[in-house]
């Protein structure tokens, strides 16, 4: 296990390097000049431009620029936003926190709904309940999240007026209340994916001999469903949960717009539009960290579920 984590960490560092380099070069290649952005409303005198170029080291060779940035990044200094002048680390981590909270909440909502539904549908394969659930999942998957979001805003924000529909709130319970509707709109589509994965995996497992044998011994229905079916379906479910958690981050862009949440996705759109290089780099790197963290979590969860994997890694 320890060795596996070490392998994973080395791979992650290499991954971060490659991603940061790619993002850095992409922005350098993009059309439009950085000076114009940096000038803002000021008159474009040659002196001012020269000053800006000197301040941001724009005359250095590309590789030197990259290495300078990397040197800072290692010390958690990602520079300052060109637009606002605020430190990248502070604004990105604040935004990322909101988005991760939203993604996790959406995932919990989706999983709580979809996993039992998937198990139920597999157990009732071909019957009315199964067809109903499968149909609903198709509906949930094809409904655009922003439409669902708008509908929810109307229902719970305007018609009944029970939940906040604007912004991300402050923190703690207020944050939670603010994120309920966005999480539901986002979680519906994700839940549909989890539902289909669970149903397919469960269909496979329910056909297995050990289920028949468990039933032949008269074990209780809960025991067969949870200990035998769910435990053995858990592996593909955990994998799909990880995938969904990764997709949820960029997938939330539209939801963030609908609910005016100052999140990761909307920040990415703004930063790219404004050619705010340090912020885009910071965002890209942090999302890479997020993806790697989720993958490691999935691996650890899989090993916890299936002892055979622990042994395979130990070798």
């Amino acid at each position: 296990m320890g060795r596996a984590v070490l392998h994973r960490a080395v791979a992650a560092v290499i991954l971060f390097l490659v991603i940061s380099f790619l993002v850095f070069s992409l922005l350098a290649l993009a059309p439009g000049s950085l000076e114009t952005t940096l000038l803002g409303a000021r008159p474009a005198t040659p002196e001012l431009i020269a000053a800006i170029r000197a301040e941001y080291h724009l005359d250095d060779p590309f590789l030197v620029q990259y290495l300078r940035w990397l040197g800072g990044a290692v010390q958690l200094d990602f520079g300052r936003s060109i637009v606002s002048g605020a430190p990248v680390l502070a604004i990105v981590s604040e935004r990322l926190l909101v988005s991760v909270q939203l993604a996790v909440l959406a995932l919990v909502f989706a999983a709580v709904l979809a996993i039992p539904a998937g198990m139920m549908a597999a157990a009732a394969k071909g019957r009315a309940r199964d067809r109903m659930a499968t149909f609903t999942s198709v509906l949930a998957m094809s409904a655009p999240p922003f439409v669902v979001g708008t509908l929810l805003i109307y229902l719970f924000g305007v018609y009944w007026s029970v939940l906040p529909v604007y912004g991300a709130g402050t923190e703690g319970f207020d944050r939670f209340r603010h994120l309920i509707l966005p999480a539901v709109s986002l979680g519906l589509g994700l839940g549909a994916i989890i539902f289909r994965q669970t149903r397919a995996a469960a269909l496979d497992v329910l056909d297995q001999d050990f289920i028949t044998f468990a039933r032949a011994r008269g074990l209780s229905r809960t025991r067969v469903a949870v200990t035998y079916a769910l435990r053995n379906v858990a592996l593909p479910i955990v994998a799909s949960l990880g995938l969904v958690l990764i997709v949820a981050l960029p997938g939330a862009v539209l939801i963030e717009v609908v609910f005016s949440i100052p999140g990761f996705g909307s920040m990415m759109v703004e930063a790219v539009g404004a050619k705010d290089v340090p912020v885009v780099q910071g965002l890209a790197l942090f999302s890479a960290v997020y993806v790697v963290a989720v993958t490691i979590l999935v691996d650890m969860a899989s090993a916890a579920v299936d002892p055979r994997l622990r042994r395979a890694e130990a070798r």
Binding site: D209, R215, G218, R308
Partner: peptide, 23 residues
């Protein structure tokens, strides 16, 4: 039937490699 299975009539299956809970 659930209360009959196991305590009145029980059954073992053909393939011992797939019959038991793998974990």
């Amino acid at each position: 039937m659930r209360s009959i299975r196991g305590s009145v009539v029980s059954m073992v299956l053909q393939d011992p490699f797939t019959m038991l809970h793998p974990l």
